[in-house]
Structures are given as structure tokens and as C-alpha cells.
Amino acid sequence: MTLRIFEALVGAGVTLLALGLWLWGIPAWVEPNDFVTVAPDLMPRVAVGFIGTLGALMCLHRLFLEPDRTSPAPIDPKSMVLTVIVLVLFAIAVTLMLTVGYIVGGVFITGALTIFMGQRKWWAIALMAICPPLMLWGFFEVLLGIPLP
């Protein structure tokens, strides 16, 4: 796929999302109020309206006016998979911090990311997993007295 087509699709996607928000999201999530001069949904509608219109214009621009017709789209499946893995690791760390505690979540995320980055020596992984969370915990919880989860 070329960059031009990819960006046209992105523009169309943005317009569709904005349309969905305009028709369904704003009525569902913005509480109406008849006793104000400016309705509460005006600013969200202005923003969503512009986003949708600009998305459509971007789509048309890329389809008909974009001079670059050969550059490839920046789609790299491997990077996307790796990004999802890192995001899942962060989501697990957040869950651990909220349910078990900061240090457990911290040890998990720094250790897991060190392995993810390619470190295979157990002592280096252990050092990276333990030191940063303990140092941050010590700095905030012990030194500054700011409680962490």
C-alpha cells in the first residue's frame, strides 16, 4: 500500500470516528442543559465537526492532490506486535501496582522490559528489576514521605 492511500484511509477513518461521536457519543455522554446561554455540547460538537471535516478533506487531498504517489505506507507488522507486547506489559504492571503494590508492579515492569530489550544475563535482569523500583520507592515513600500504592 502506498503512503497516499494509507493516509487517505486514515483521513476516512478519522471522519467515521468523528461521525460516530457526533451522532452517538455526544448525545450519550454530554448531559443537556436548557438553562445556559451556550449549550454544553456546543464545544464538543465544534471540535468533532472540525475533526470530521478535516479528516474528509485530508482523505480527498491525499486521493486527488497528493503529488507523492510512490512512497510506501509506514506499516511494519513486527513493530506493531512489539508495541502491543510493551503495552500489555505496562497494563499488567499497572494492574499489579493497583492490586498488589508499587514494588511488585515496578519489579515486574523493569524486569520484563529489560528482558524485552534483549538482556539475557540473569544478574543484570535481577539488578534492573530490583534497583529502580526500590530506589524510587525509597525516595518517595521513605525520604519524602509521599505514599505510593
Binding site: 448531559e31 442543559n33 446561554t37 455540547d41 464545544m43 468533532v48
Partner: peptide, 24 residues
């Protein structure tokens, strides 16, 4: 411009400044 308006949209999250009704 899309990014700027997305920023403006996310800034509307919370209570409406005039009537205090909820948004998103």
C-alpha cells in the same frame, strides 16, 4: 489541525463551565 481539535475536544471532558453538567 486535527490534532489541535482533538486536544480541544479532550479539554471539554469534565463539568460544563457554565451549567455544571457533565461531559464525557
Amino acid at each position: 489541525l486535527i490534532a489541535a481539535f482533538l486536544g480541544l475536544l479532550l479539554a471539554t471532558v469534565g463539568l460544563d463551565p457554565e451549567g455544571g453538567t457533565s461531559r464525557f
